[in-house]
Design a binder for these strands. Structure first.
Lengths: 227, 227
DNA sequence: GAATTTTATGAGACATATGTCAATTAATCG
DNA sequence: CGATTAATTGACATATGTCTCATAAAATTC
């Protein structure tokens, strides 16, 4: 329990078991971020959550189950915030650039989540698909608008994602500065066929920063039936 | 001991200890390729090499040591073959495109090595630097020739590498076909500022395939002094 | 505040990994 | 071939991890 503990925060008005489960998930995030999925152990997670080893197994079948739960929750929340942050934009060039920059902003503003997301994306393929679900549509929109001159398929999307993930990785390691998002967006736009000067302008235009926030869930009125 | 066992092949005329060491390294390659560096265990490696557990520690201090040995050898050999294959080319656009395509060819022709290289590159940073050592020079040459309109620095190089690695990854998983090399090279050239039609022509032009080959080392005359 | 239900605990059975070492087997040499 | 050196072996001490379960503690209900 080191950093923001967003799950615990979200569950603070819920029943005891929900809070314990949230503690475990926050602990898992920080252990996964530190050690990676492979190296992480249930023992480490329970130690970080300050609960007994056995408690873990009340809530999760095994390490895989909590890993999946955490990864999908993070991806879901990030995608949601991303969607919200781009609601007003319809220009394909701007949307594609924004999405990349926002994702980097989010991941950097909550590095543990960023780390965990990064690790998870390399493990759960369908999760990557969901993180970039908005992407395909925007790319196709750009082709329709005549601003992208490239064939949209899985290969392109995975190349595009790899660029974003690489920037995210460097950013989290401190090897790239705050302009990492703009720089990789610029390169992506050029790759897609946007004129270099336009790519530069769009990718570097000002963008008000956003950070991850969790909804506050009101206290349950009746006893919670599910774990 | 599943596939090509290149180290064993290379050591077949050497003394017994060199052969055993080579067996271990080949086994390590295949275990690393299958399970990744983290998940791999010394036990798995000795089982794959069909030697006793204790034998491992005669040749390597621990898992890290064999991992490093294997990774650096693979990287070294791959870079060498890559260099040789591009000796005749001086045009920067062609060199950059060739390098990417050749690397994919090599890695695909020896999937275990490709896998191991892929994994290693994510772990040993200096190794990635060595694999892409030729790259920076070629990129700068392209800028000097006026064909690349982009700023060359670590960020660009890591983005560029990520694209190659992503293609390699998909290729090894069977999610991309033989044209993966050409496709990613095309995207890379566009990103660098090469005109789309030129990028397409260069990236897809015919290239005679190469495969990894190991030198055959003649039998030692005197007893080998070193392990 | 006693009874009941929910939640948490940690000892323990089992599994697997690491690294060492005395003993064994194989290879080489004179 | 017998002696000597090189190479291999696998049992063992130690460590870490997984998952279960009988029991304890805490929370809730009546």
């Amino acid at each position: 329990m080191t950093a923001l503990d967003l799950f615990t925060l979200e569950a603070r008005n819920l029943g005891k078991s929900a809070r314990t489960k949230a503690r475990l998930m926050d602990a898992a995030v920080s252990v996964f971020a530190r050690d990676g999925f492979e190296a992480a152990s249930v023992n480490e997670i329970t130690r970080a959550a300050e609960v007994a080893n056995g408690t873990f197994y009340v809530y999760f079948k095994d390490k895989d189950e909590i890993a999946t739960a955490v990864a999908y929750r993070i991806a879901h929340d990030v995608v949601q915030q991303l969607d919200a942050a781009m609601a007003g934009t319809s220009d394909a060039v701007e949307r594609v650039s924004c999405a990349t920059r926002r994702l980097l902003d989010l991941a950097t503003s909550t590095p543990q989540w960023g780390q965990a997301l990064f690790r998870a994306v390399w493990i759960y393929n369908d999760l990557r698909d969901s993180v970039v679900s908005y992407l395909r549509a925007d790319l196709e929109r750009g082709v329709a608008q005549g601003v992208f001159t490239v064939e949209i398929d899985d290969f392109l999307i995975s190349t595009f994602s790899a660029m974003t993930m690489s920037a995210l990785f460097r950013r989290l390691k401190g090897e790239a500065g705050p302009d990492a998002g703009s720089r990789v967006a610029q390169l992506q736009l050029r790759m897609l066929g946007v004129a270099p000067d336009v790519a530069k302008r769009v990718a570097f235009q000002a963008l008000d920063p956003i950070t991850l926030t969790m909804p506050v869930i009101p206290r349950e009125t009746e006893r919670s039936k599910k774990n």
